[in-house]
Design a protein around this nucleic acid. Structure first.
Lengths: 342, 342
DNA sequence: TTAGTTTTTGGGATCGCTCCCGGCTATTAA
DNA sequence: TTAATAGCCGGGAGCGATCCCAAAAACTAA
């Protein structure tokens, strides 16, 4: 029933060489006569031999596998990030293990622990939880032989490479864009209120900077918790409390989508009566009616480069410490949800 | 720098027992005195010892890992499927490796080959390619010691468990729903035209059955290739060629979204002038204006049960052959894109 | 032709675990 | 008291690769 156990010894036997030589050709190592190499390669091909990865892992202490810790794979941003990470992994001939952490640090740590069983050479994680807790844990981890790259969290440990979007800049530019359109009554629906999200904080700071630069005194900030439904509710509240507002900057596209629905519900036209802008650049925001103007995060690119950074770190044990962190700029995508104020 | 190599021997030493006993408590095997078990467990905990998974894999020939082959993780249906699969995997204490196949069989096969290096105990795949090619390949694979479960393809091999949505029924019910609403001029935008998609074919057949049952002679079928933009174009074509149509059944939500945009563009109101219905139940379809009526595939459930089936097959080597295939019914979600014909 | 090099090749130890089997210790029965 | 049985535990032989080191082969130069 089962396939005859074909291992490196069998290949060696059939090719008339020793296992060492077979190992050399498998791993493309020097020191094998071309003719021998060819002969062995042929046998390997004929028998469709695949070296056992557990044995390889045991002997070499490398699994050629990367662990991905993601909050929620159904989130379009994360999915695109994973797709980018996978591309680089494939190119570098690495495998990927996936673990969902459902936005809670404890689960993230559990995922990491799972990976600590020597299953992976390194971890790429987008954290969604509190930075402090993460910080503590990662300090311990760093003393292990697991390399890690963290996305979207500003942790303190200097030995851990970080990837972040330039959230301050994004907040600034989104707001500036609305100001340049002539708006002065600009509200902001921010993400979370808790300390765990520096992304939200930085975007708020960017918003404030743009306003103050333009000499606009009134800040109108409501929390939307990065949730569509929450944004829907809070938008209604915002409009009833601040009917003077002519533009809203949402800290995410999903919130903008919720907001758009609320606005329509209240009989407001977008963008004629009110302009809205989001952040993320998810496909969905382009499909809305009207399509929503947004600052797009290069999710694919972030995944790709995050994976690249990790693999580099893995393969050149040199200059491990103090590698430059990566910061990604967002791209403004002008669509039909924003309009010059007349 | 690196952590002192802590292995099963060290635990054994510190606990004052043999490695065999440590192994027994790690794997929860019988034959260890309660007091000994406790003592060993304590040492394991104190040292935060994690058995090396490569060594485990080598010795036991089980990796406790499942390979997932998915066409595109950024597709919301697949993402939700993966989420379901992951839930079950976690519960059963399995890990998951992810590989994207970008909708082409060759890449799917490459992914499978990658997994054949003994990295995984089994494979769960949603295929997006031609059924014949897949059939051939899987026949070979079956003779290996890799278990596999295939979603969304009707392959012939009887030993491979399959999961499918009841596409015929979905096509039938979608059409019937429109008929019950009083429509008689009902068009269908189908998926692909090529032989590779039985899903599309079955839905078309369901559409035809419903029409003929209702004594409606005229079938109006256009190909939309499961692509939003294609559906946009073809919808415009359809309307100009068949202005009498009052309802369109799209073979996917994405196509319905493209169609909706086309309809609006042409000045048609949905659902007042024309009703539309889709298939899939992706979140996006609920966020459209109007929200689109659809038949929802239980993606999460499918992932969960697919993984469950695979793990069962893995763990009970018994009754391997001829396990019942799983067929999932879709759920009609009535939203605002369909309306009684007056 | 022979010694000295450089390439190729083979063998053995090892990685960290599982699992089988035999031995030891206790407990029970006669 | 002694033998039989059951419950615990330890030791050794793999699992299938890598990698170091020494041996063999091939090549060079004198």
């Amino acid at each position: 029933m089962k396939n005859k156990n074909i291992d490196i010894y069998k290949i060696a036997e059939l090719a008339g060489v020793s296992k060492s030589t077979v190992s050399r050709v498998i791993n493309d190592k020097a020191g094998v006569k071309a003719s021998t190499r060819e002969k062995v390669a042929q046998v390997i091909k004929d028998l469709n031999y695949k070296p056992n990865s557990s044995a390889k892992g045991l002997a070499s202490k490398k699994t050629h596998t990367i662990g991905l810790v993601i909050s929620d794979i159904t989130d379009p941003f994360f999915a695109m990030f994973v797709k980018g990470a996978e591309k680089k992994a494939m190119e570098a001939n690495y495998n990927m293990m996936l673990a969902n952490s459902h936005w809670v640090v404890e689960e993230e740590l559990k995922c990491i622990q799972m990976f600590e069983e020597g299953r992976v050479d390194g971890i790429l994680m987008i954290s969604g939880g509190s930075e402090e807790k993460l910080d503590n844990y990662l300090d311990n981890l760093a003393s292990n032989n697991l390399d890690i790259v963290v996305v979207d969290r500003k942790i303190k440990n200097e030995n851990i490479p970080k990837l972040n979007s330039d959230n301050f800049d994004a907040g600034y530019r989104a707001t500036k864009y609305l100001i340049d359109l002539g708006h002065t009554k600009i509200a902001h629906i921010k993400g979370e209120d808790i300390a765990s999200s520096h992304a939200s904080r930085d975007r708020v700071a960017g918003y404030e900077k743009a306003l103050s630069e333009a000499g606009i005194k009134e800040k109108i900030i409501y929390p939307g918790f990065f949730a569509r439904k929450k944004a829907y509710q809070v938008t209604k509240k915002l409009i009833t409390e601040h009917s003077e507002v002519t533009a809203i900057f949402y800290s995410s596209d999903m919130m903008a989508i919720g907001g758009l629905k609320a606005l329509k519900n209240m009989g407001l036209r977008v963008p004629e009566d009110i302009s809205i802008i989001g952040i993320d650049g998810i496909e969905m925001s382009a499909l809305m009616d009207p399509p929503i103007t947004t600052l797009s995060q290069p999710a694919f690119e972030m995944g790709y480069q995050g994976m690249e950074k990790l693999i580099n770190k893995l393969e050149n044990e040199i200059n491990n410490s103090h590698s430059e962190d990566l910061i990604f700029q967002m791209e403004l995508i002008e669509r039909a949800s924003t309009k010059k104020l007349n």
